[in-house]
Every structure is written in C-alpha cells, then in structure tokens.
Design a protein around this nucleic acid. Structure first.
Lengths: 117, 117
DNA sequence: TATTGACCTTGAGCTACTTCAGGTCGGTAT
DNA sequence: ATACCGACCTGAAGTAGCTCAAGGTCAATA
C-alpha cells in the first residue's frame, strides 16, 4: 500500500513515516517502479507499534535501539521483550501521573466554582 | 524561597523555571537585593500547576494563554475554568491511549513468549 | 585571603519532528 | 494532445520546548 494509507492505518503522519525511515527505524520498505514507497502489512504493523510506543512516551533513543534489534531478526527477541516490559512499567507511572493531575485539576476547578458563587 | 527550592517543590528544573519566567508564564517573581529570585508560596503553587499541565501534555501555546489569563486576575476565572476542564478531558483520552498501548504490549509480549518456547 | 557553591545572564545546541520549495508521475477533463 | 490535478518524491530550513556552557556576582566558610 502507499504512504497515505500506511499513515492512516498506523496513526503516524506521512512526514513522520518518512522521517522514521530516514532514521533507520523502518527496515525494508519496498519501492514501486515509479519510486514510490510500497508498505507491506508487516511494515504497517511495525509502524503502528512505533506509533503507540512514542505516543505513550518511549524516548526516540530507546525506540532506535528497539528498531535496531528488530532489524537483526528473531535472535533479539529476549532483548526486545525486555524493552517492552520496561515500557509497560512506564505506562503504570504515566497512569499515576494522570491521576495526580486529575486530582489537582478537580481541586482547582472546585476553587473556581466556589469563587464564582 | 530560592530557585533550587522552588524547583524541587514544583517538579520543574531550575533552567525550565527561568525559561518559563522569560516566556512570561510566571508573573511577579520578586528579586532579593543581590538580584536573586525570591519565590513566594503562590509562585510555587503556580509552577507546580504548570509542571503538571505540561507533564500531562498541555501544549505550550495553551499554557501561555492560561498564564496570560492568570496574570490578568480573577475576572478571567471562567476562561481558565474552561481551559482546565478541556484539559481534564484530554487526560481521559490519554488514559485510553495507555490502556490501548498496554493491550498491544501484552499481545506482543505473549507472542514473544510463544516464540521462546 | 582564597575558595567554594548557589545564583545570575546571554547565547548556543539539541531532539523530534514539521513545513517548505521545487520537481516527478499517472490519470482525468478540454 | 495538452493542460491540470493530486499524491508522491527529495533535501533543506524552521519550530517547540527545553538544556547546557561560558563567564560573572556574591556570601559564607576554611
């Protein structure tokens, strides 16, 4: 499929996909006879994973490591597993942050309400 | 109190506080005779709020609007209330994102497990 | 007295995109 | 046939939001 479809399926923007490819985060993107990128289902699954990892705060540095491991094949699965479970722990921390911020906002909004009465 | 204490209390880094002040996000920071910044309790509460808003993804653009309103005094409370409740909705969306990503990670980790067996 | 440590300012550097300028290609309307 | 359109391409420049380095002030301590 073409880049616009890859973008709408993965969640990433077209420009970001091109940027990621240039950065070496997306291995093996085929090209058509006219020079246009041809994304396979596997490509799009990979992009989708990248999208979610970034969206939830994985730094590019780690993403780069993860992508390098992915490019090396199945032998790196234990390392990749390690990275993903570490990220899963980060998600828990983010959820805590959201809860805290929610509490702060609730208090603040209450104070505003009180002022307005 | 001095900037280092304001930093450790608010969560922001020293450099970030100076940057925010330069950007006009922190009104009325007093200075001592030696030119050092003197933060009041109100200053620190405000910085803490800025910290949490940024930490949970409020863009600087919105933060700037919010700060401008804050600087104008109590008459802007309805507008500020509006911004904060909009942000509260964003938090819900972020929580959804975390849940989705968690699901993706769980599936991925399971596949890895299967491969390793 | 000399040095340490926390602060100050200005200005450059960095990350992760994002936008722009300028060009190619395939398909449709005149 | 040709003129235009939209989606794609590349390489370079621009942006957001910090972050760090260089060089200087001042108070307190060894």
């Amino acid at each position: 499929m073409r880049i616009s479809e890859a973008a709408s399926r993965s969640g990433l923007k077209i420009d970001t996909i091109r940027y990621y490819e240039a950065e070496g985060l997306v291995p093996d993107v085929a090209r058509g006879t006219d020079g246009q990128r041809c994304f396979s289902k596997e490509n799009v699954d990979w992009l989708t994973l990248l999208y979610w990892l970034r969206e939830t705060g994985m730094p590019m540095k780690v993403l780069r490591q993860f992508a390098a491991l992915y490019a090396q094949g199945d032998s790196t699965i234990p390392d990749r597993k390690h990275i993903l479970s570490a990220h899963s722990k980060l998600l828990a921390k983010r959820r805590d942050d959201l809860d805290r911020c929610d509490a702060i906002l609730a208090r603040k909004l209450e104070i505003y309400e009180e002022y307005l009465r």
